[in-house]
Design a protein around this nucleic acid. Structure first.
Lengths: 141, 141
DNA sequence: CGGCATCCGAGTAGATACTG
DNA sequence: CAGTATCTACTCGGATGCCG
């Protein structure tokens, strides 16, 4: 898997984006100016990513069904993540007070919008996962 | 900040991407089939992201300079992350055996390629960070 | 200068049990 | 069914000190 050479022009564009993102990048500002860190922390959490992916695939999922999909997650963590994802506006929680109770989760449009960006990244990761794994074993020697 | 409505068509495309990514998504396969989790874990780590951003902005940085940029990081974590990022092929470490020693880090083309994808995501996050923060406080009530 | 070794504290996740 | 409560285990990060 070959990586195309990165042109100086591309590097320049990237630098400009970063500069814009950080405002002024040089000053030794503390990270408080940067809610992005905080938001990315959730958005890039391993469980959250999987939850979003599954909700992107299945239009709606109930708690226990989702739990089975997100292999290995505990009830505690799942409900915790769901709550945070809901609070941030990525997903919607609908409760039906039946007996037994039924709760359904699905992505909001906002969550879908985010998922699309996230997918671009995970697709890149998947595309080059073998390269990375190969790099690792080469480095280990 | 308005989120555009997501069309069914878009949702379908997303679902297809996810399906492709997971192979068959339905079976209860353990996550071992999925090195993506592992790779994403590094690639989405909060410190790693900042390191990559700074190395994307400054063509080359020495250890202590980088440490000052990545506000709040400890030597231990920085060197740890740098090692892993190097192992995965994102960055390059050049050592000059002077006295005192000089070590320079810079992105590889591979790292640059990844950074571009990462930036797309962080830009989205920044664009909607106010929305998310607003969602949170609304939810808190 | 660029780390690594060591220790330590806090937070986080997992297991288990329980409930509206 | 959809969680919560509790307890424990353990990882991770921070601080400090040292060294080539």
């Amino acid at each position: 898997m070959e990586i195309e050479t990165v042109t100086d022009n591309q590097k320049l564009r990237v630098a400009k984006k970063i500069e814009k993102m950080f405002g002024h990048i040089d000053p030794k500002l503390p990270p408080e100016m940067c809610p992005i860190r905080d938001i990315m922390a959730l958005a890039s959490d391993k469980w959250s990513i999987l939850i979003l992916l599954y909700l992107g695939y299945f239009p709606t999922l109930r708690f226990n069904r989702l739990k089975k999909k997100v292999y290995g997650i505990s009830s505690k963590i799942l409900s915790e993540r769901l709550k945070t994802l809901e609070a941030d506006g990525y997903i919607l929680r609908k409760m039906y007070p039946e007996v037994p109770i039924r709760v359904e989760y699905n992505l909001t449009d906002f969550g879908h919008s985010y998922l699309q960006k996230l997918l671009d990244l995970t697709e890149w990761v998947q595309k080059y996962s073998e390269t990375i794994l190969a790099n690792r074993s080469k480095f280990a020697k």
